[in-house]
Every structure is written in structure tokens, then in C-alpha cells.
Simulated scan of single mutants.
Amino acid sequence: MPKYMLIMRGTDESNAALMAGWEELAATTYQFIEELVKAGVFIAAEGLDDAGQGVVVDFSSEAPVVTDGPYGETKELFGGYFLLDVASKQEAVEWAKRVPSVAGSKIEVRRVAGEDETPSDDEGSVEERRI
């Protein structure tokens, strides 16, 4: 079955609302994860730390440039994900509609490319080259 990532994206406003109601949202999220597990589609779920605590490595110049925090003009930030093993994009979308969230946030649904879809070369896979 294909894997789909449900990518949680929020704005400063939706992230503030999320933090204001964190305890209730955490409880409903744990219930949602239990439903995913019972349905046999759950692979993983993780939330990310505040974007201001991260760094950006920018490859637009000859040498990579590292700066603190998220991109300066970001309107939406990737806040975490659910990884599901479902039969179709439509099933992933149906699960995405049930993700506990707050107004102003979004869930992006993206299929994870299978191993047979990644470019290969005559050198073999990464694992084969390590041997």
C-alpha cells in the first residue's frame, strides 16, 4: 500500500491558538492516533519544535550559508506530520479531514515515493555502495 504524509502547516496566529488550547488538542490528538492504530494505517507522527529554534542552510550561493530561524518571509510553517499506510490518496484525505487542529491551520497530503520510484544508477543503491 502507498504511504502518505499528512503535513501540518500553520501560521503564527493558528500556532498561537494551538498553544492556547494545547491540553485539549493533545488529548484529542492522542485519541486520533489510537484510531489510526486500530485502523492499521499508523506508521508515525511527530511534532516539531518552534521554528525560531531551528536554522536554515541555504544553498543558493557557492558555499552553504547558515542562518538562525525559519525563512524570513514564511507565512506558513511545517509543524509536524502523520505518516500513514493507506490504500489511496482519497483515504489519506479522509484521515486528514479528521486531524484535530485549529482554525487557520492546513494539512497538506503528499504521497511518499516508493523505492522503485527513486532514480537509480549503475553504481547500485546507497546500501550496496557501503559494502
Rank of each mutant, 00 (worst) to 15 (best):
P2V: 03
P2Y: 01
K3S: 13
K3C: 08
M5C: 05
M5P: 00
M5I: 05
M5W: 09
L6M: 01
I7C: 12
R9W: 04
G10S: 12
T11C: 00
D12C: 08
D12Q: 14
S14V: 00
L18I: 05
L18W: 15
M19P: 02
M19H: 07
A20T: 05
A20Q: 11
G21K: 15
A26P: 03
A27Q: 08
A27P: 03
T29I: 06
Q31H: 12
F32K: 03
E34K: 07
E35Q: 10
E35M: 03
L36M: 08
K38C: 10
A39R: 05
G40R: 04
V41A: 02
F42G: 04
I43K: 12
I43D: 11
A44H: 14
G47F: 00
G47R: 08
G47S: 09
L48N: 09
L48G: 04
L48E: 01
A51P: 13
A51W: 09
A51G: 11
A51H: 10
G54L: 10
V55R: 14
V55E: 14
V55Q: 15
V56D: 04
D58L: 10
S60K: 09
S60N: 12
S60E: 11
S61I: 02
S61F: 00
A63I: 01
A63S: 13
P64M: 07
P64G: 08
V65W: 02
V66C: 06
V66D: 04
T67A: 11
G69A: 08
G69L: 05
G69Q: 06
P70T: 01
P70F: 02
G72S: 15
G72D: 06
E73T: 11
E73L: 14
E73F: 05
T74G: 13
T74S: 15
T74L: 15
E76Q: 10
L77S: 12
G79K: 09
G80N: 04
Y81D: 05
F82Y: 15
F82M: 07
F82L: 09
L83D: 07
D85Y: 07
D85A: 14
A87S: 14
A87R: 15
S88G: 01
S88P: 00
S88A: 01
K89I: 03
K89T: 04
Q90G: 07
E91P: 05
E91Y: 01
A92M: 03
A92P: 02
A92I: 00
A96C: 08
A96Q: 07
R98D: 05
A103H: 11
G104Q: 01
K106C: 05
I107A: 06
E108A: 07
E108M: 03
E108P: 06
R110Y: 05
R110P: 03
R111V: 04
R111N: 01
R111Q: 13
V112G: 09
V112R: 08
G114W: 03
E115Q: 14
E115A: 14
E115K: 13
D116L: 12
T118F: 15
P119V: 07
D122S: 13
E123Y: 05
G124M: 00
G124E: 03
G124I: 00
S125I: 01
S125T: 15
S125N: 04
V126Y: 11
V126D: 09
V126E: 10
E127I: 13
E127V: 15
E128Q: 11
R129Q: 14
R130Q: 12
I131G: 12
I131K: 10
